[in-house]
């Protein structure tokens, strides 16, 4: 049952990656990466029980923290960048 859940999460991660590659705007990509990150946290939690290694849960929490801060940092960067290059084509 863990394997089925893990498979569903992996498929969704693949879908999120597809969206990240397709774009079309930078925000779609950030959204997809954020989704990928939260799915990674879920996958780590499930794998911790699939393989009987509860220490994976610590990794999951650390990943959740890093993912959140990372997404905010990328957004900050994108915002500053688009503000400085506001004359050029946006969000590509």
């Amino acid at each position: 049952m863990y394997a089925a859940t893990a498979t569903a999460i992996l498929v969704t991660m693949a879908l999120a990656l597809t969206r990240a590659l397709l774009g079309p705007t930078i925000y779609d990509r950030v959204l997809a990466v954020n989704m990928f990150g939260t799915k990674t946290v879920l996958l780590l939690s499930v794998i911790a029980f699939l393989n009987g290694r509860p220490d994976f849960l610590d990794l999951a929490l650390a990943y959740a923290l890093i993912n959140f801060i990372g997404v905010l940092a990328v957004l900050k960067f994108v915002q500053d960048y688009t503000m400085r290059h506001s004359g050029e084509e946006r969000g590509q």
């Binding site: 049952m1 863990y2 089925a4 859940t5 498979t7 569903a8 999460i9 498929v11 969704t12 991660m13 693949a14 879908l15 999120a16 597809t18 969206r19 397709l22 705007t25 925000y27 779609d28 959204l31 997809a32 989704m35 799915k39 879920l42 499930v46």
Partner: peptide, 26 residues
């Protein structure tokens, strides 16, 4: 619970690909 969760996760992934613009994808 886990299967239902997998279902919603998968549907969300499909939706992120299917929806026409950024806000609907969110």
């Amino acid at each position: 619970l886990m299967l239902a969760g997998s279902f919603f996760v998968f549907v969300g992934g499909v939706g992120a690909l299917r929806m026409p613009d950024f806000y609907t994808r969110m």
